[in-house]
């Protein structure tokens, strides 16, 4: 087939397809539609100022409004963010009052060493759209991070394994609640109680960037393996080599490791070979 024929045929694409493509990017380019590039930064700066100043003012006004008009019945303590008139319950922290039992029928029951004593500090899993979780699989023995590169939780009936991602973090200075973050192969993350492993929060990351890059990386590894195997470099077992991949904007750096050594392969975004290096173990 000649280029002319192919190009001509593409030129004769159905009109509705052409017009749809013309319309589609416009929906996404409101920011780039500014006449000058600096305009979007100016608008962004104005928005930041408006939101920064406006939000606290609006929240204060809402708080004043609520306190005046919608005080919960005294002593109930279950009115969400609104404190009862007698002040018997702290509002908005998401914590149960100290000493109160936190056991709920559907809350995962995780035993073993609980730092800070009461399990009443466990945040409510039902808040902010977090999916309900079934019984998490808790490893036996102490929950030690170093021995715990991955954890498995059963979430919405499905077992998900999460790799350890970062060290502990204090999420709430008020309660000094310490959690670990784990990330799943599908981009979802969980936060777990650093002491007990108890699931605190689960979020699925729908970021297309994350999902796509992981797909590309998998493809890059397969391409690199194929290149390495076909290059007859004298290392055996490259088909099943351990692999690691790093992705920059335009390139993938794949390292394939076998017992005899490793191969470092750099690919461009279309899987083309950029560089190739073999290291043999002494």
């Amino acid at each position: 087939m000649s280029f002319e024929i192919l190009n001509k045929a593409i030129g004769m694409l159905d009109a509705d397809i052409i017009e749809a493509a013309e319309a589609a990017p416009e929906r996404r380019t409101s920011v780039t539609a500014f006449a000058k590039p600096w305009m979007k930064w100016a608008v962004a700066a104005i928005l930041i100022v408006v939101i920064g100043v406006g939000t606290p003012v609006a929240l204060n006004m809402m708080g004043a409004f609520r306190n005046e008009n919608f005080v919960a019945p005294g002593g109930s303590g279950n009115s969400g963010f609104i404190a009862p008139a007698d002040g018997s319950s702290e509002s908005g922290s998401g914590q149960s009052p100290e000493g109160e039992s936190s056991s709920k029928a559907d809350e995962p029951s995780l035993s073993s060493s609980q730092p800070g004593g009461s399990s009443a500090e466990t945040p409510d899993l039902s808040s902010s759209g977090t999916p309900e979780c079934d019984v998490p699989e808790q490893p036996e023995g102490d929950f030690v991070k170093e021995n715990m590169p991955a954890v498995t939780y059963r979430i919405n009936g499905e077992y998900k394994t999460f790799d350890y991602q970062s060290s502990t973090a204090v999420v709430d200075s008020g309660s000094s609640y310490v959690i670990d973050h784990y990330v799943g192969s599908d981009g979802s993350t969980v936060s777990a109680n650093a002491g007990t492993g108890e699931l605190v929060k689960y979020e699925k990351d729908f970021s297309p960037k994350y999902l796509d890059s992981s797909i590309f990386e998998a493809e890059a590894v397969e391409t690199a393996k194929s290149i390495a195997v076909n290059t007859a470099i004298g290392l055996s077992g490259l088909d099943n080599a351990n692999s690691s991949v790093e992705c920059s904007d335009d390139k993938f750096f794949v390292v394939l490791s076998v017992a005899e050594g490793s191969v470092e392969i750099c690919l461009d975004s279309e899987g083309g070979l950029v560089s190739f290096a073999v290291k043999r173990n002494p």
């Binding site: 190009n7 593409i10 030129g11 694409l13 397809i17 052409i18 749809a20 493509a21 013309e22 589609a24 990017p25 996404r28 380019t29 780039t32 960037k209 796509d212 590309f216 992705c247 904007d249 335009d250 975004s269 279309e270």
Partner: peptide
């Protein structure tokens, strides 16, 4: 579909398509 048409019907550059869709270069190329 839109990226294909932008590239091969309108002859838009990769950079333009990245701007339009908010994608990175490697994603558009891939």
């Amino acid at each position: 579909r839109g990226v294909f048409v932008r590239r091969y019907w309108y002859y838009d550059s990769i950079e333009s398509i990245c701007d339009m869709y908010g994608f990175g270069k490697s994603k558009v190329k891939m």
